[in-house]
């Protein structure tokens, strides 16, 4: 009987001593964390994808709590609804940011680019790029080995078997940018989704990243940008710039009118909608078209001969 009592007494005393020590230690080394961080984190999606640029959802929650206004940072996955909840918790105002989406800037399918080489090494774009520039004459285009597919945590990107190029599922894509980071050729760009008209988000982009001179790019691929500048001329909003023989459409300035899509002699400009038929072509003043003719001629000629 005595043994049992002594044992209980010893354990009770030990427990008390330990709890007192723990109490003081806990007080001494207390780390203060804003309770709001936990609250914010609980409304974030919890995918820890890193698309926001912070290490996981906790990192973003911390940054959001500290930030003075929420315009610069936000969760690309959750989008506006999640950010509204966050703003409510923090008592700040949310600025609606434009939803974004990944865009593949290469259209070098097997039909458009002749495959001259055969690569039988490890099927990874990152590895292939250390060996050579690609199986075709275009040294800028897509390998098609699917590093972007591997990188996507949302199952939003896949390789089209027919074309051998990645295709982005607009519904699933959260614009986290993992695919753009994984691509050794920097083909994937995160762009504005664009304004929605009749159910489709309208955006226009140059589906090529070839910086070669026109003649070289022309030989390499049927739909390469040759930097002819016709699109830049036709654009009314000065959204298109030509640099290093490559056109680029500034998503901030582009109004997605689609004028450039039909103008491109190489069909390198892509749009998510059917651009207006080239009706206005005969309409403009005849003087303007005449003046533009001599410059445009060579590009048009080569284009028709190719077709």
């Amino acid at each position: 009987m005595n043994v049992v009592l002594i044992t209980i007494a010893v354990l009770v005393v030990l427990g008390l001593v330990a709890s007192v020590i723990l109490y003081f230690v806990a007080n001494k080394f207390k780390v203060y964390e804003d309770p709001k961080i936990g609250e914010v984190e609980s409304v974030l999606p919890g995918a820890n994808c890193g698309g926001c640029g912070f290490p996981g959802c906790h990192g973003l929650a911390e940054a959001l709590t500290k930030a003075d206004d929420l315009s610069a940072i936000g969760c690309p996955v959750g989008g506006a609804p999640v950010m509204e909840k966050v703003a409510k918790i923090l008592g700040k105002e949310v600025v609606a940011s434009d939803p974004k989406v990944a865009v593949v800037r290469c259209n070098g399918s097997c039909d458009n680019r002749a495959h001259k080489l055969e690569y039988d090494g490890a099927k990874s774009c990152a590895i292939a790029s250390t060996h050579f520039a690609g199986e075709t004459d275009c040294s800028f285009g897509c390998f098609g080995y699917g590093d972007c597919v591997e990188a996507c945590q949302f199952d939003a990107i896949s390789i089209d078997e027919k074309t051998g190029l990645p295709v982005v599922d607009e519904e699933k894509c959260v614009a986290c940018g993992a695919c753009a980071k994984a691509c050794p050729k920097n083909i994937i760009e995160i762009r504005k989704k664009g304004r929605v008209v009749q159910g489709t988000a309208r955006r226009v982009w140059i589906s090529c990243v070839n910086k070669d001179k026109g003649a070289v790019a022309m030989k390499a691929c049927k739909t390469s940008c040759i930097g002819c500048g016709k699109c830049a001329k036709v654009c009314k909003f000065e959204a298109i710039t030509i640099e290093n023989n490559l056109a680029y459409i500034d998503p901030e300035k582009c109004k997605a009118c689609g004028m450039c899509v039909n103008e491109c002699p190489k069909k390198a400009i892509h749009a998510t909608f059917t651009p207006p038929a080239p009706k206005p072509k005969p309409a403009p003043a005849p003087a303007a078209t005449e003046a533009a003719k001599p410059e445009e001629k060579p590009a048009e000629q080569t284009n028709t001969s190719k077709e």
């Binding site: 090494g121 490890a122 990874s124 990152a126 590895i127 250390t130």
Partner: peptide
Amino acid sequence: RPLLDYIRLGKG
């Protein structure tokens, strides 16, 4: 297995 391919990538 393309062991060296991956090792080279890792080395980079």
